[in-house]
Each structure stands twice: as C-alpha cells, then as structure tokens.
C-alpha cells in the first residue's frame, strides 16, 4: 500500500536502484564465469607442487618459468612461434599494404569482384580446406626439395635448406600458409584505412616534387599507420592462436611451435609436468592478451566487412 502513496519521482528512483542492482549482479556473475578457468593456470604456474587441480599454492616459485628457458624444447617452441608468426605477420602487412592501397585507389573493373571475393574468402572455413591445401603443399614441397637437391649435393646443407624452405615440415610453408589465411582480413582493413586518406594528399606531395617513393614514405605510411597497427595486430592474434595449420604441417620436434608442442606434451598422460605446462600457457597467452588489448578498439570496424549503416 505504501507504493500507492509514493510520489512518482520516488518510484523512478526505486526502479532505478533495482535495475542498477540487476546490472551489477549480471556483470559480477558473468565476470566470475569468465575468470574461473584462469585461477588454476595462474596459481599452478607459480606453485611448486602444481597439479591438474585448482589449489592454494604452498609456496611461490619461479622455477617453472626458469625451466622453460633452461629446457630445450620449451625455448624452442617459443622461438619457433615467434619466428613463424612474426614473419607471417610482417609478410601479411607488406602484401596487405600494397593490396589494400591498390584496391582503395583503383577504379578498374576488377575492384568490385575482388572485394566481394574477399568477403567470400573470409567465410571459407579453414577445416574444409585441409585436404586440398595438403595436396598443394605436397606439390610445392616436392618442387622446392627438387630445387634444393639440384642446388647442393651436400646432405647436411640439403637438410638445413629443407628445414628452412620446405612446405611440409619447414618454416617457409608455415609462414606462407599463415600469411595467406590472414590476408583477406588484413587487406580489408588496409583498404578501409586507405579509403579514408584523401587522394589530394598524394597529389599535393607529387606537385611539390616528391618522388613516388617519398610520397609513400612520408605521406601514405604515416597516415595509414593505425591501419597497419590494426591489420598487424589481428594477423598476429589469429596466427599466434591458430592450432590447425601447425597440426597439419609440422611433424619434426625441431619445428614444433607453442600450440602443438603443448598439445603433444599434454597428451603424454603418464608424465604431464603441470608446472611446466601452466607456466608455458601463461607465456603463450600473454602476447595474445596484450595484442588484444591494443586491437580491441579496432574490433568493431573489422566485423562489418563493409556494411554501412
């Protein structure tokens, strides 16, 4: 009955408080759900007696992290990941920079078909490609190894070159496949950013006597820097976290990257070193989280893929 005599402004504040409480409750519950799995990995990474279960550590130790850098395979996985994903990201940026610029500036007949094509390519599910891509990689692999064998007869050199340039179980193959997978999104982002740079700037620079290269270096690249940042961050995050390509195209332990190395170590059910693996998981996750924090503000732009309004 109190509610009846309550003035309408009080009524508003009551519902306001109630919905405010609901908002906090929602956020706290969802946040707890989101955080729950992380407690274990963070605690276990510093726990001298790490296990599969969430537990309060008896002490704090950095041994697991030291182990990664002392342990040959841990260090190798980290380095391989950095080299492969790093090179793929740089390559993606170069090709997407050129491609995005061309797509933004050209008015040729191939502009629209290519843009629609890129949207469709982004929709292709990678698992559907594994069989034909495997065949393509196999073909390129035979070809490049034929070249290597022609180039040198020294077996040791052959092995070394094969490790570098093979398409299956070699660095080059993994770098190129990661690059190809990240290109559609990266080109799209670069095209969008170049679209926002008026052509007048380039023309003005050209009128002032700047060479083509000077225009690119001093006008285009600085203006497109946020685009490169966005494209690079997303290429890095996606390639860094990818599991399918390493699974398909690496077998030798020397080439193992973080996701596959960890996965195989985890499959050895009898002898899982949880301290080592959780510390490695922390190291593997940190770069992705940092990159995501920077990339977050660009995220909504990448969803739409050209949707206006």
């Amino acid at each position: 009955m109190v509610a009846v005599v309550r003035s309408s402004s009080e009524d508003v504040t009551v519902t306001h408080h109630a919905s405010q409480r609901r908002a906090y409750l929602t956020l706290v519950l969802i946040s707890l759900f989101c955080m729950m799995p992380f407690f274990w990995v963070v605690l276990a990474a510093f726990d001298p007696k790490a296990s599969q279960f969430l537990q309060i550590p008896q002490g704090v130790t950095l041994d697991h992290f030291k182990n990664i850098f002392a342990n040959e395979s841990g260090m190798r996985w980290v380095l391989n990941s950095v080299v492969i994903v790093g090179s793929a990201t740089i390559l993606t940026l170069i090709f997407a920079g050129f491609g995005g610029y061309a797509l933004s500036r050209t008015q040729a007949w191939w502009k629209r078909p290519l843009l629609y094509g890129i949207i469709l390519v982004r929709i292709v599910p990678p698992p559907a490609l594994i069989v034909p891509v495997y065949k393509v990689m196999l073909f390129l692999n035979d070809w490049i190894n034929g070249l290597i064998n022609q180039f040198t007869a020294d077996v040791e050199q052959q092995q070394m070159l094969s490790r570098m340039f093979s398409f299956i179980d070699g660095y080059l193959g993994l770098i190129l496949i990661h690059c190809a997978m990240q290109l559609p999104l990266a080109i799209w982002i670069m095209k969008t950013f170049f679209d926002a740079i008026p052509k007048d700037y380039e023309e003005a620079a050209a009128l002032d006597g700047a060479s083509q290269w000077q225009t690119v270096r001093h006008v285009l690249i600085p203006l497109a820097l946020p685009g490169f940042a966005a494209a690079g961050l997303f290429a890095f995050i996606n390639a860094w976290g990818d599991f399918l390509m390493p699974l398909m195209f690496t077998s030798s332990p020397e080439l193992q990257t973080l996701p596959l190395g960890m996965f195989r170590a985890f499959l050895r059910v009898d002898a899982i070193d949880y301290g080592f693996l959780t510390a490695l998981a922390v190291i593997y996750t940190l770069p992705a989280v940092i990159a995501f924090a920077f990339a977050r503000k660009f995220l909504t732009q990448t969803f739409s893929g050209g949707v206006k309004g």
């Binding site: 989101c34 992380f38 274990w40 599969q52 279960f53 976290g241 596959l260 985890f266 593997y284 989280v289």
Partner: peptide
C-alpha cells in the same frame, strides 16, 4: 574481464577447461 577469454589461444582454452 569479459574480454579476457576471447584473447586466449585455442590450445590454452582446451588446456584450461580440461582442468
């Protein structure tokens, strides 16, 4: 906090949830 799970690599997601 809500964004954190999205940033974690797939392999680590599997690893966390198996625990």
């Amino acid at each position: 906090i809500i964004c954190l799970p999205n940033a974690v690599p797939e392999m680590v997601v599997g690893f966390l949830w198996i625990s």
